[in-house]
């Protein structure tokens, strides 16, 4: 019993390490990308409705259920906490 608890602890630490590693990896990619200036009239691709950097309006219901059925929430420009309905 004691041993299994220890195992769980180790895996949790490993899990967090993996997360940190992934985050720094992504930040490194972002830093490496060199940006070219884009004029407002050159944004016909960026302004496509499928290119928005937020969730779609139609995803609202599924996102609220995902936030009830899963422990994690937030950082998705959506709602985090409050307004329960946590059935």
């Amino acid at each position: 019993m004691r041993q299994s608890k220890k195992k769980q602890y180790v895996s949790s630490v490993q899990f967090q390490r993996a997360g940190c590693w992934l985050c720094s990896f992504i930040l490194a990619i972002v830093a490496l990308l060199s940006c070219t200036p884009v004029k407002e009239y050159q944004k016909n691709k960026l302004n496509d409705s499928e290119m928005v950097l937020t969730n779609r309006k139609i995803e609202k219901t599924e996102l609220s259920f995902l936030s009830y059925r899963e422990g994690a929430s937030g950082a998705n420009a959506g709602k985090s906490g409050g307004g329960c309905g946590c059935n």
């Binding site: 990308l33 940006c35 884009v38 050159q42 691709k45 960026l46 950097l53 998705n76």
Partner: peptide, 11 residues
Amino acid sequence: IVNTKLQLALL
């Protein structure tokens, strides 16, 4: 905005 085709967001 990275270029005319790519954009990123960090939250």
